[in-house]
Design a protein around this nucleic acid. Structure first.
Lengths: 164, 164
DNA sequence: TATTGTTATACTCTATAACTATA
DNA sequence: TATAGTTATAGAGTATAACAATA
């Protein structure tokens, strides 16, 4: 439900127009899997808009955060943390290096490995993205409600860890 | 967190190996947006494995369900319901028609428009996929717990409808 | 032999814009 | 002019396999 414009509960199309009430969603309505996907897409889309105001794709955020929090991390460790193949990370890191957000230097003791670190510009961009994320989280919190937040977050973590 | 193998709460890589505890996820740990994405990816991946046993990609499921529940629906209405551009649906519908799961015929009164319907084979495939989905939902329900399910589902719907 | 990172390649899903055929 | 659907094209994101350099 990308592009939802927020009239409570009304189902809307990509440009905010109402979808004919006559559409029957059948069991999709009550399935967790389908609604999990719709919620994630909507949230991702919303964060995407914010992050683009900073000139970054939403996918860069997790990468920058992980590098910022784990200075000197290798690309392999980074790809494991992000749950992607290392080859998927090559173009991402290359792009971040090219744009001066990440510095990469070989380790002395193992010259196969690179150490990744944020540059000053990278830290600045991460700060801006973190601000976006905090605002985004505030919006999500307002929807979820304070009382349910902890429980909701716990369930999400359990799904990620336990589903098979 | 794709490929998590289910040791409760343990963070694991794509092949089930433990990720160094030393990785610092920083604020990502407590952010809804990030965990929503991880949960959705894990769940989607799990459903993907199931649906591939039936020989279908997971993306076909929602499309077949919508056509099955809304016989004679047009491609434009379908794309609105799915929240995608109509051009994104062309190759999907074409594939379903080619493989004999969906029948397409022009409307008499408006020859620009097609009516989509499931064929007998399409209904059979949908039945199989629905069985996969039900098993998948049972697994999700076991993780979420009966008491929280309704609330959890409601929150997902609210996020999809209200986030901006 | 095993590991780090790159390259080549391909696949899925999606979008925008221009097009056609109808209306 | 407007709408239904297609085509051409592009982009993001991901994966597998083979590879070079290094261990």
């Amino acid at each position: 439900m990308r592009g939802s414009k927020g009239t409570r509960g009304a189902r809307r199309g990509r440009n905010g127009e109402a979808i004919a009430e006559s559409i029957n969603f059948g069991p999709l309505e009550r399935w967790i899997g389908f609604n999990l996907r719709m919620a994630q897409e909507a949230a991702f889309q919303a964060f995407s808009r914010r992050s683009q105001e900073v000139g970054e794709g939403p996918g860069r955020f997790a990468t920058l955060t992980l590098i910022g929090r784990n200075p000197g991390i290798s690309q392999t460790a980074l790809s494991l943390a992000a749950g992607r193949d290392k080859s998927s990370l090559t173009p991402v890191v290359e792009d971040l290096v090219r744009r001066g957000l990440v510095a990469r230097k070989r380790m002395r003791d193992d010259r196969r490995t690179y150490r990744l670190n944020l540059t000053a510009a990278g830290r600045k961009t991460l700060t801006q993205l973190t601000r976006c994320a905090r605002q985004h989280e505030r919006n999500l919190d307002a929807i979820i409600g304070r009382r349910d937040r902890t429980r909701f977050l716990q369930i999400l973590k359990r799904i990620a860890a336990e589903i098979e």
